[in-house]
Design a protein around this nucleic acid. Structure first.
Lengths: 173, 173
DNA sequence: CTGTATCCTTAAAGATACTG
DNA sequence: CAGTATCTTTAAGGATACAG
């Protein structure tokens, strides 16, 4: 965002949250991490973002304590910290809201509670066990609203197989 | 955001959502509307935002169908549409996440289920009735993490009295 | 009260080339 | 593979003055 990414003088937790994750691309980067993307190049390919911007965002996210980097300079991996994983309910709610408005053919992705084998509700609750499962217990698969024609890069292809959230995404190149 | 507010070629509802509410200030404007702020000047005073930016954001929000304007040119009022009210779970989750990380003295604002007179949990559920109350059934009051020293303008003062969400905020000038 | 209209400064983002 | 470095373009945001 131009001219400052902070919201000075706002006595509000929402402002603090947005200072951490409100910048352009940041939330999409974290979404990809939830989906198992961990490599710099994979993020770049999937997000269609410039290297410079991606570098800056990743560095900020590491500084803020939302991402952890491992693996050194080459073949490094970025993984979500506990603080970032705690963002899942907000991200899930945003995805659901986006679906209601802009996915007339239904959800693009469906989340289910792995242990109950039940698709979870819009509220985030599992209809079978009644809990709000943490992301690590969720499986993701393409839904009726998905549009495979949009993307055909290796990361997008890999993301189309059903899989657990937070698990590393194996990208075939 | 500089150079485009959209996320082209992202087959993802989160991207669509962010195109609508991801711009700087937009989510804070909607938050204020949930809290009952409805007037141009009140938003400007409370957000510490320039008129030009506020005008642009409000106009976009009306175009997107998230705000409705009534009252004509002067003394106009902006109110949330149903689509915007549906954003509450996401906004609530973001506020809670921000509190966990940046409000060590506890929540700045406490939400309670008006009919049950019970403070709602981090999950958004009312411990008494078990439901996830819609924003219209929520009351808001200052919490231990609030910092009244930050702001003393009329809007901030008015926001410090306990009140129902979505109800118009009476600002004394 | 609720905006428009201008001007100006800053920085955000893309493109491209280069590096350990 | 995972970035830096540089350059250029564009737009975002603040300030100020003005208007219906």
């Amino acid at each position: 965002m131009a001219l400052g990414t902070d919201y000075a003088r706002q006595d509000c937790s929402l402002a603090r949250a947005l200072e951490a994750i409100g910048e352009r691309w940041t939330l999409l980067i974290l979404r990809d991490c939830f989906f198992g993307v961990r490599r710099f190049t994979d993020l770049q390919d999937h997000l269609d973002i410039s290297k410079a911007v991606l570098t800056q965002r990743l560095s900020t996210l590491v500084d803020t304590g939302l991402l952890e980097k491992s693996g050194g300079h080459k073949h490094g991996e970025y993984t979500l910290t506990e603080d970032a994983i705690a963002l899942w309910p907000a991200m899930f709610a945003l995805i659901k809201w986006g679906e209601q408005r802009w996915s007339p053919r239904g959800p693009r992705r469906i989340f289910s509670h792995a242990v109950c084998e039940t698709d979870i509700a819009t509220s985030g609750q599992c209809p079978t066990c009644g809990t709000i499962p943490p992301p690590g217990e969720l499986q993701i698969r393409p839904g009726p609203g998905a549009d495979p024609s949009v993307r055909s890069d290796p990361v997008s292809v890999a993301l189309r197989s059903p899989r657990l959230l937070l698990q590393p995404l194996p990208v075939q190149r």
